[in-house]
Computed example of a mutant assay.
Amino acid sequence: MYYRVRKPYPYGDYVCAAPASGLRCPAAAAMRSDWLEDYVLSRYRAATGVCGPVSRTDLLAAGTRVIVSKGRCGGGAERLVGPDTSRRRS
């Protein structure tokens, strides 16, 4: 996935990199960057007990990986509640 700027919003999106590479992804996914970043940081902090700032280097050194799959779709209000974690793999 790669980060894509969403003008004029203060956040962007993480989107599947396959189409940008000319490939077709059977399960392309995208997610608002602020939701994904908040979720990853909260899970990292819960797992490690870290309370202060967390850098990208910290996440990479810990081997942090995130799997994003299609969840709720459409433009309704249900998309504003944050990421759908019901299908997340442990």
Rank of each mutant, 00 (worst) to 15 (best):
Y9T: 08
Y39M: 06
A46Y: 08
L60Y: 14
A62W: 06
Y11W: 08
S69Q: 10
A29H: 08
L23I: 03
G22V: 08
I67M: 03
G74T: 03
P10F: 10
C25V: 09
G76M: 03
L41C: 11
P8N: 15
Y2H: 15
L41I: 09
Y44K: 15
A18G: 04
R24E: 09
A77Q: 09
A61F: 12
R56V: 15
L36I: 11
G63P: 01
P83A: 09
A46V: 02
R4H: 14
G76C: 01
G63C: 03
D38P: 02
G76W: 02
L36Y: 07
D58K: 15
A77S: 00
V50W: 10
Y11F: 09
K70S: 11
P53C: 12
E37R: 10
P83D: 06
R24H: 11
R72Q: 06
P83L: 03
A27E: 12
R79D: 05
S21I: 07
A28W: 03
V66Y: 02
V50K: 15
K7R: 11
R45T: 10
G82S: 07
V54H: 12
D84P: 00
A18M: 13
G76N: 04
L60R: 13
V15Q: 09
P83G: 07
C51R: 15
D38V: 04
P53I: 12
V50E: 12
S69P: 10
G76Q: 02
V40Q: 12
T85K: 02
S21T: 10
A17P: 06
P53L: 13
M31F: 09
R45G: 06
R65Q: 01
C73W: 04
S90N: 08
V66M: 04
S33L: 01
G75S: 08
R65A: 06
L41M: 10
D84E: 00
G75R: 04
C25A: 10
A47G: 00
V50M: 13
C51D: 15
R4K: 12
A47L: 09
D84T: 02
A27C: 14
V68S: 04
T48E: 02
Y39H: 04
R43H: 05
G12A: 03
Y2I: 14
R6S: 14
G76F: 10
D13V: 15
C73M: 08
S69W: 02
G63D: 07
C51F: 12
V15Y: 01
C73P: 01
V5E: 14
P26F: 12
S33A: 13
A28G: 03
